[in-house]
Amino acid sequence: MTTEALFNPGRLGAIEVANRVAMAPLTRARGDMDGIQTPLAVEYYGKRASAGLIISEATNISRQGRGYAFTPGIYTDAQVEAWKPVAKAVHARGGKMVLQLWHVGRFSHVSLQENGAAPVAPSAIEAGDMVFTEHGFEPPSKPRELETGEIDGIIADYVRAARNARTAGFDGVEIHAANCYLLEQFIRDSTNHRTDRYGGAIENRTRLPFEVCEAVAGAIGADRVGIRLSPVTHSVGVTPFDSEPQKTYGFLAERLGTLKLAYLHCIEGQTRGANMPESFDFQALRRSFGGAYIANNGFTREIAVDAIRSGRADMVAFGRPFISNPDLAERLRQDQPLAPEAAKEFFYGGGSRGYTDWPTFASR
């Protein structure tokens, strides 16, 4: 099967990409408790610059937005300075990189919040599952409901983070509105029981992600802003699906399309689960958005080639394979075998082992 289409250059808004293979965001928790990225990240991301686009690990927009220990931030000067050599290393190797902006909402723990405050959420509904703290995995703390007057401050946090990302040298940002974190908690009627202008009707529940994208686009340019959605995943916490996901996410995609964003990035199915469930039409979502589309979730080389060649996607994002295959894009191009999947013990936290020590195919 020819891979020509998968390795043709392309464009996402203002971002020119050398090929159609994207590196999906992968939380690795190698920073410190002040949210400062590890120097090892320079090597880690630099080695993966042959991807057409690198989407960074999810990066906290504020202290309040943090839900995992040792994850990086982009809200202090020190955090910005730590990210600068990462973006520089990727660019030096001909790559492009956007920073994913993250607020976890209810999926956090009081030990990760300033002064032990409760996490925040659209509604005071406990998440369940486990979060990663300094002491290991612990149940998330019960959140408090955000007051309407606080929401403008959260939008401002996204804008500050986006501007900081550009200062750090990134080509753009991706708004994380997937995986059941804060923005998706507002979208779904299962986690949003509000009665103000941010709750109830679909227009209200999708208001915050739209307003965030609108504000960030106004700050750094819409053609440098992407957004990630996951209409049928329940990857973190006890998060039931929206009662009408096709209608809800289709409405949101259409609204987002009016902003002329760089791209829409969708997890097509349950994270780490089945790809493309028959119960949801992702191509309808793509048509509603009307712009560039990145498909993600369980893609093989063959499926990715077909997705690009058939026009079903503009890029395909690969996640975990990039952990143990720093040269994944080149391996896909040459149809070389992939390294075994990294052991889960190396996913989160630690040092260079399982992070920067994976060899390229050529060096094996």
Rank of each mutant, 00 (worst) to 15 (best):
R272E: 14
F282C: 05
R30P: 09
H103M: 07
V225P: 09
L264Y: 08
L101T: 05
N325A: 04
P39M: 11
I227L: 13
Q283D: 11
M315K: 01
C266R: 09
G31M: 02
A162H: 08
H234G: 14
Y263A: 02
R205S: 08
H234E: 12
T239Y: 13
T258I: 06
H265W: 01
N275D: 06
G354A: 06
V173R: 07
K47A: 15
D157G: 01
I54Q: 10
E57I: 03
M130K: 12
A117R: 11
D327G: 12
I308Y: 06
F186R: 06
G354S: 08
W102L: 08
C180H: 13
K142I: 06
G250K: 08
P39G: 13
V120D: 03
F132I: 04
L328D: 03
D196P: 08
S62D: 07
A178I: 05
A58H: 11
T356K: 04
L40H: 07
P240W: 05
D152Q: 14
G46C: 11
G350F: 04
S288A: 15
E126G: 13
H103W: 07
D242Q: 05
P139I: 00
H91E: 06
I308N: 05
L252Y: 10
E81V: 14
Y355N: 05
E145S: 14
A92E: 10
D77V: 11
I61K: 09
F7S: 10
C180L: 12
Q79D: 07
R106V: 07
F280T: 10
L40V: 03
Q64W: 08
A5P: 07
T191G: 02
A222D: 10
G237Y: 06
A156Y: 03
P277G: 07
E81D: 15
G250T: 03
S324H: 02
R320G: 03
G226W: 04
R228P: 01
E4D: 15
F282H: 01
G200L: 00
G351S: 12
S324P: 09
K344Q: 13
A168R: 00
R312N: 15
L328S: 00
G95W: 05
N179H: 15
E4S: 15
P139Q: 00
A49H: 06
P240C: 06
I227D: 01
N325Q: 11
T195F: 01
T27S: 15
D189P: 02
L285F: 02
S111Q: 09
M33W: 10
M97P: 11
E126K: 13
R331I: 07
G31K: 04
K88C: 03
Q79K: 04
R205G: 07
A87C: 09
G199L: 12
I74K: 15
T239L: 02
A89L: 10
S310E: 14
E345I: 15
Y68P: 00
I74R: 13
D357L: 10
P72H: 09
D327A: 10
L40R: 00
Q113T: 10
A22L: 04
V216C: 03
R30E: 03
G290F: 03
Y293V: 10
I175Q: 01
F318D: 01
T271E: 13
E114N: 12
A178N: 09
F299T: 00
E203M: 06
R197G: 10
A18M: 13
V305F: 02
R353F: 08
S279F: 14
P85M: 01
D77A: 13
Y68G: 02
G94E: 11
G153Y: 02
D281E: 08
D306P: 01
G149E: 13
R166G: 00
